[in-house]
Nucleic acid binder design. Structure first.
Lengths: 207, 207
DNA sequence: TGTACATCAGTGAACGCGCGTTCACTGATGTAC
DNA sequence: TGTACATCAGTGAACGCGCGTTCACTGATGTAC
């Protein structure tokens, strides 16, 4: 009965080791380039053991995505979350949350992004992951029009632009390391600049 | 002498046919997924003929990049190009130029982007392709501070943010077709919204 | 508590598929005389 | 202008490499009695 524990425990440890190893390998060489045997080697297991846990690299990524979503729910339901986008602090809060989330889950985010280029299933998954945030942003933007402000365009389109900006800016600086610019950037400066740009962009004409 | 022409002509035609076929195949199935034989089949040639012209898929993409850069030089040296970013029209002009360029060269841009995920050489190439535009934008932004305006951050960082915004927004709407939003977008609305957002973002606090 | 058998997690060598790449061949074009 | 030979663009079947995936095997854990 409880004696089932040792085997299960061992299997669970191996599965966890494979997932952690995968994140490291993805971060190092990219999801698309990563070989199954790179992951098993990194985890210190034999090649064959991989298939006791996952049907393939895609399923492993799905599992990582599930973990990520489980963790994300905590963040979204966070405290002190003002939705009034006429308030610069509310915008900064959202930018900061995104930045932290991206940084914390970089390996999986980038892996998903890469998988999406090659596999329509993951393209859909990634869209599903980001779409609620866009809708969420659009909702907040309506506070601005409600307060008499004028947005630079349709709320949904503006929200998608903000999402595009945050995503690609984070990618440029956190993943590529700002190498196309030849300069480094602190988290604080990144968030401040993004928040200021967005606040002016959406609220600049208010009143 | 002139009789060399027929052979050369035939070879040149095949090379051109392969390049055009590659763009179609890349647009359809993506650079990473495209097989050499997909390209030769699309071009109506035998598999082996590919290697009379290119050492591999990477070299073909390099050739497409060279073509793209040759075409791009014409656009950049375009007429009536105001550099004063305190002027909304100047910003709109730049956004429009980017949008047209992206749309016209979508297949190659996306192929480069995909290749960059897997091959550091192309990552560098893509950076080299975009970096001058960022520097160019940063230069224009200095007009704003010169005119007494206050940017939301360091000019280079703001320029990279604008580049990130334009790239990812174009990608979302032109390549992915805005499917995460469930709405379509005309070129005009896209450019208007981007231009308005950027203008407010960088010049909103001026005076 | 002990023994005999069953099940399971993990191993790693071997297999085989997919696709890039080669190469002997063809027919046409170019050159030499 | 004609003939004999050389070169070249293109062909497509065959080869072979890399890597995902399988599978017979091992030793440990679990179960039955």
């Amino acid at each position: 009965m409880a004696s089932l524990g040792v085997r299960r425990e061992r299997a669970a440890q191996t599965e966890a080791a494979l997932k952690e190893a995968a994140k490291r390998v993805f971060a190092r060489s990219g999801y698309l380039t990563a070989k199954i045997t790179d992951i098993t080697a990194e985890a210190g297991r034999a090649a064959g053991s991989f298939y006791s846990h996952f049907a393939g690299k895609e399923e492993l990524l799905e599992a990582l995505l599930v973990d990520l979503l489980a963790g994300a729910d905590q963040g979204v339901a966070a405290p002190g979350h003002s939705t009034d986008f006429t308030d610069p602090a509310a915008i900064r809060w959202h930018v900061d949350a995104f930045w932290r989330f991206f940084r914390a889950n970089q390996a999986v985010m980038v892996a998903l992004h890469q998988a999406a280029m090659v596999d329509e299933r993951f393209a859909r998954r990634l869209r599903e992951l980001l779409a609620p945030d866009i809708a969420h942003l659009a909702e907040h933007l309506r506070h601005i029009t409600a307060a008499g402000g004028e947005l630079p365009g349709d709320p949904l389109v503006v929200a998608s632009a903000i999402g595009a900006l945050m995503w690609q800016f984070a990618y440029t600086w956190l993943v590529a390391g700002g190498e196309e610019i030849g300069r480094s950037l602190s988290d604080e400066e990144a968030v401040d600049t993004l928040a200021a740009l967005i606040h002016r962009g959406v609220a600049g004409v208010a009143r």
